[in-house]
Design a protein around this nucleic acid. Structure first.
Length: 122
DNA sequence: AAGATGACGCCCG
DNA sequence: CCGGGCGCCATCT
């Protein structure tokens, strides 16, 4: 397997994005790839998760809200999500309600919101 | 180096 | 809703 790769730049960023998905929320593979700066590399997100550990992998699902992972792992994913409050409609997650906004997925480029002007006259 | 694989995504019938 | 086909891209054989 795999190659331990030294060149982990790409998935390191992807994993960083996955780590930012809050509890009770989900993101699609495409969302993660895009937020990480690799639009179109949704498949690599799955790879990145394989090589990861300790991340909320269950929060990454298909673009249609379905769990794509098969076998008992897929079942575990569903149980974990439901356990953290994610609601399903049939076989898919209610994305309207649980999809994580890019703003949160994005690398924390967030600047300290303007330094707040002081109270001058407010 | 070429072909096959995969926890993908999107379009079409 | 489901299946089939094509595009995508890093890794594996």
């Amino acid at each position: 397997m795999a190659a331990p790769a030294k060149k982990l730049g790409m998935f390191d960023k992807m994993l960083r994005v996955v780590a930012r998905i809050p509890r009770g929320r989900v993101a699609t593979y495409g969302d993660v790839a895009y937020a990480a700066g690799f639009p179109g590399a949704a498949r690599q997100v799955a790879w990145a998760l394989h090589a990861s550990h300790g991340l909320p992998w269950q929060r990454v699902i298909g673009s249609n809200g379905k769990i794509l992972l098969g076998g008992h792992h897929g079942l575990e994913q569903r149980l974990r999500l439901e356990h953290e409050g994610v609601r399903f409609i049939g076989l898919r997650v209610d994305l309207k309600q649980h999809r994580c906004p890019f703003q949160i997925l994005r690398p924390a480029k967030q600047k300290p919101a303007a330094k707040k002007r002081r109270a001058a006259g407010r």
